[in-house]
Nucleic acid binder design. Structure first.
Lengths: 343, 343
DNA sequence: CTGAAAGCGCTAACAC
DNA sequence: GTGTTAGCGCTTTCAG
């Protein structure tokens, strides 16, 4: 389809300014080597004409773009949409556009999407979301990102270890430990953990924090049941049912993300189990709604919006010789879903 | 910076397949005029070589892109992130990339973003989120979209009236009416409405549905207080405080979105007002968490994910001579936050 | 400091 | 059915 919309092009600006297209290009991109007077005039004329550079022509000629690629597991999930919010905010202020894709936690889809972003010559790629404990699963993705990175592309990841690039790393271990210490401090000993797939590093890290706290309290982690289900609200419901059925004397459920905790709370309500008087429940992430639940969810706060913003800031900075890692503190937020052991 | 990353290009595929670059192009884009055998072989070789077309070159040559531009108010808001989820899902299955930007409910920012998308030659633009009751506010945006549309670009909007393009329109009036009828049916007469800015069409429409139901029940809408606050959780909290202070005998709060309802619920809990025994509360949208609240939120369901998917489908279809409008039914979902009038 | 000209990788006429 | 070729609009050497 022929595009009849006659956008003003660089030639038009150049002609109007009475300079060559090369000079016009240099003036607008700020490339040194143009007399200030000429450059100013060109810029002014460009504004008057409402000139906006054709991104694709620019990209084709220069080999890179101002576009940022953001890869998330599922944009409908608050954890990721809050991260995206932070990324979009910074991107807008830097005049960059953001291309988002979600992968449904499928490593193959993720690889696919990363490839497509590389092919689209995005200027930077941000990968958010848990990695896999088994490094081989994400080897192809890592490989792809390395190639991209070596070719001058910028990469930052949120919460993944094995990717060997600049990273924003939430303190999942410390968070898991803190929330467990809180529960232990309330006197609970019959604890159950609600976990997503332990193939995910996020789950593994949080869980290891939980175990550290248990050991420090002189408990045997192997006696604390870890119920593995989908890392979602539905998974939380299912997990709650299994805890109730298989470990009926449990007094505290430590869920490894808020989604599971919310599902768990919902199921406990259905089952008529009062929280926190009969059962304490904790989450992880502190999604926006956590504080507005009833009871308010005791959880570990991760500043998702900020994490997104930082990741983009990292990606936009000049690359260092070594991957940078920015640790993000996870802070315990005590609300009403936890209380002393019943009885 | 010279890009050393030697992506396989179309020439490479063509050479490997022993055909011309034109034939290779036709094979891969599905343009008719290539023998099936050749086309198949080319495609297979392309896959083997990990070929991914350079979006920018394609776009520059063809004058349009596979990229979809999605404009939302705030991606961190579940309403929009669920819509985005639907858009991304369809986009992925169509092999299209999505560029998302958010505008913070600021018409100027929105205009800015739309302009930038037009300049980037996106293939289609989807604008989600409430429009403004005052048409002049969005006149510039409308203008921009029309130019884009006339130039062959595709546009679809979600929930906005005044834009004169293909639209997915949630039945806000009917939903407002349905939820109000439900509340009236429970015997409530001292009702308060929690509304976002009435400059927003979404708010105005839902409110007019509320009023219709009131009138039909023989009530005078002017006697039902409409508390206007931010269309957010915080606004819901503030609204709840004002209802409690200014209209203490209220028995039912009709919030015009779930966010406000959730904030309201939270505030009522703080204030020690039991729901629904002392106060009924309703929402609108049915965001994912609505059913997992305690009490479960009675609300009006809008299939956000589906709305996003439909909007993209509309945008991808051949344009009709007249703008198409797809009405999305709003269905009442009764949960536990509403009950009979106390006393 | 400025201009001419060679591509960037692909699509789409246009020939054969 | 398939190949040749002329651009798409811009950046970037390379001359002047």
């Amino acid at each position: 389809m022929k595009r009849s919309l006659a956008q003003t092009r660089l030639v038009d600006v150049a002609a109007a300014a009475g300079v060559s297209i090369a000079t016009a290009s240099r003036s607008l991109s700020g490339t040194p080597g143009v007399s200030p007077a000429v450059a100013d005039r060109v810029r002014q004329i460009a504004v008057e004409l409402g000139y906006v550079a054709n991104l694709h022509a620019r990209s084709l000629a220069s080999g890179s773009t101002a576009t940022i690629g953001l890869v998330v597991h599922e944009i409908g999930d608050p954890y990721f949409s809050e991260i995206a919010s932070g990324v979009l905010r910074v991107a807008a202020s830097e005049g960059r556009t953001v291309q988002i894709c979600h992968t449904g936690r499928d490593p193959d889809a993720e690889l696919q999407q990363i490839r497509s972003m590389v092919a689209n010559r995005v200027g930077a790629i941000i990968v958010a979301g848990s990695g896999f404990v088994d490094p081989t699963v994400e080897l192809p993705a890592r490989h792809e990102l390395e190639r991209f990175s070596e070719a001058g592309g910028r990469v930052a990841v949120i919460g993944r270890h094995h990717l060997g690039v600049d990273a924003v790393l939430p303190e999942n271990v410390e968070g898991g430990r803190a929330v467990t210490e809180h529960v232990l401090g309330l006197g609970h000993r019959r604890i159950a953990v609600l976990a997503g797939s332990t193939a995910l590093t996020t789950v593994a890290d949080r869980l290891s924090g939980v175990h550290e706290a248990l050991v420090e309290a002189g408990l045997d982690p192997s006696e604390v049941p870890v119920v593995e289900a989908a890392f979602t609200r539905e998974g939380g419901r299912e997990g709650a049912r299994r805890v109730l059925a298989e470990h009926p004397d449990t007094t505290a459920v430590v869920a490894l993300n808020d989604d599971m905790a919310i599902g768990c709370l919902s199921e406990l309500r259905v089952a008529g189990v009062p929280v926190p008087t009969r059962m304490s429940v904790t989450g992880f992430d502190d999604v926006a709604v956590a504080g507005d639940l009833s009871p308010g969810l005791t959880t570990v706060r991760l500043p998702m919006v900020d994490m997104g913003a930082r990741a983009l800031a990292l990606a936009l900075k000049e690359p260092g010789k070594r991957p940078r890692r920015q640790r993000i503190p996870a802070t315990l937020v005590v609300r009403d879903s936890t209380g002393p052991v019943p009885g």
